[in-house]
Simulated assay, not measured.
Amino acid sequence: MTLNSEPTNPSSIPPTTTEGTVAEASEPSVLDEGTFARVKEPRGASRLPLGDGTWHQLARQYVWVQLISSGLVLAIVVTAMLVLTLAFGQTWAWIPGGIISAILIWTIVITPRQARSYGYQLRKDDLVFRRGILWQRVVAVPYGRMQLVDITHGPLDRGFSIAQLKLVTAAASTGVVIPGLTQQAAESLRDTLIDVAETRRTGL
C-alpha cells in the first residue's frame, strides 16, 4: 500500500483504493488552498533537510489568529500595569509586566516567520511533521500507529475558518498537533488518515 503526497481531487484528498493506494494527482489539493508557498528553513548548513516529496503548509489566516491572540494578551498586561501603577501606586508591576510584554512583542514579531516553518508531508508509510527555526522538530507518525485523529477550533479560529488537527498514537511522545489548517483541509486530512490507518491495522 502506498500513500501519495499529491492527491487528485482539488476539493478533497482522494480516498484510498481497494489496494490501499492513493492515485496520482495533476491538480492542486485542498491541503494547499490558501496556504504559504514554501516551508521556511534555517539558514545554517546544519539544519534538518526537507528531503524529497510535497510539503503542505498552514493557512495564512493562522498568522492573523496568532497576532490577534498575542495582541489581546499584550493589551491586558499593559492595562494591568497601568492600573496597578496609577491607581494603587504599585510601581513594582512594571518589572514582571515589562518582561511579559517584551516576550509578547517578540512573539508577535516572529509569528509570521515561525508560521512558515510548519509543514507536513504524506509519505508511503507515515506522516512527517516539522516545525521551528531556532529549535527544529521533525516527527514521523506511522499510519498504523494512529489511534485518534481529533479536530478542534476555538471562537477565533472559527472566525477565520481554521482548525487544528491532533494525531494521537500509543506513545504520547509521538503525538502531533498540526495547527492552522483550513476547515476543509482538516476534515479531508482527518478522513484520509483514518481510512489509511484502518487499512494498515487490518493488514490489507
Results as ranks from 00 to 15, higher is better:
187 E>T: 12
190 R>L: 07
59 A>K: 03
140 A>V: 07
203 G>F: 02
14 P>Y: 09
141 V>F: 02
1 M>V: 12
164 Q>E: 11
111 T>V: 10
14 P>F: 09
137 R>P: 06
55 W>H: 04
109 V>W: 09
93 A>K: 03
172 A>W: 05
103 I>A: 08
26 S>W: 10
41 E>A: 11
31 L>V: 05
41 E>N: 10
41 E>C: 07
204 L>S: 13
75 A>L: 15
181 L>S: 02
87 A>H: 08
41 E>K: 08
117 S>L: 05
132 G>D: 06
61 Q>M: 11
147 Q>E: 13
52 D>G: 08
43 R>M: 10
74 L>H: 01
93 A>C: 07
46 S>I: 09
58 L>V: 09
185 A>R: 02
90 Q>L: 15
172 A>T: 13
200 R>Y: 07
90 Q>S: 11
39 V>N: 03
159 G>N: 06
59 A>R: 07
107 T>E: 12
91 T>K: 11
133 I>V: 14
133 I>S: 04
129 F>Y: 14
28 P>F: 08
9 N>G: 03
109 V>L: 09
5 S>Q: 10
103 I>D: 00
106 W>Y: 14
124 K>S: 14
117 S>R: 06
32 D>T: 14
114 Q>H: 11
36 F>R: 01
136 Q>F: 06
21 T>M: 13
127 L>C: 04
19 E>T: 09
32 D>Q: 13
187 E>C: 03
136 Q>Y: 08
121 Q>F: 04
161 S>D: 15
153 H>E: 13
137 R>H: 10
146 M>C: 08
163 A>E: 06
63 V>C: 06
127 L>P: 00
49 P>K: 09
78 V>S: 00
171 A>T: 12
112 P>W: 00
92 W>A: 15
22 V>H: 05
147 Q>I: 10
48 L>R: 14
137 R>L: 10
33 E>V: 14
89 G>Y: 12
147 Q>Y: 04
35 T>Q: 02
78 V>T: 03
169 T>P: 05
126 D>W: 02
170 A>N: 11
23 A>S: 12
85 T>K: 04
46 S>G: 08
86 L>D: 10
109 V>G: 00
147 Q>P: 01
28 P>D: 08
182 T>E: 02
174 T>K: 11
124 K>N: 15
150 D>L: 09
104 L>F: 03
6 E>T: 12
70 S>H: 03
93 A>N: 06
35 T>W: 02
27 E>G: 01
190 R>P: 01
191 D>P: 00
36 F>V: 02
121 Q>P: 03
188 S>F: 02
162 I>C: 01
170 A>V: 12
184 Q>V: 12
136 Q>C: 05
54 T>H: 14
103 I>F: 13
91 T>N: 13
40 K>P: 05
144 G>Q: 13
135 W>T: 15
70 S>M: 08
72 L>W: 04
122 L>C: 05
101 S>K: 04
194 I>W: 02
10 P>N: 07
141 V>Y: 00
158 R>K: 14
116 R>W: 01
117 S>Q: 03
170 A>T: 14
10 P>A: 07
15 P>V: 01
4 N>S: 11
76 I>F: 06
24 E>H: 11
88 F>H: 13
139 V>G: 07
66 Q>V: 03
71 G>T: 00
169 T>I: 03
127 L>F: 07
7 P>D: 04
5 S>A: 12
7 P>L: 03
97 G>D: 01
106 W>L: 15
120 Y>Q: 02
187 E>A: 13
186 A>Q: 04
198 E>K: 14
106 W>H: 10
5 S>E: 09
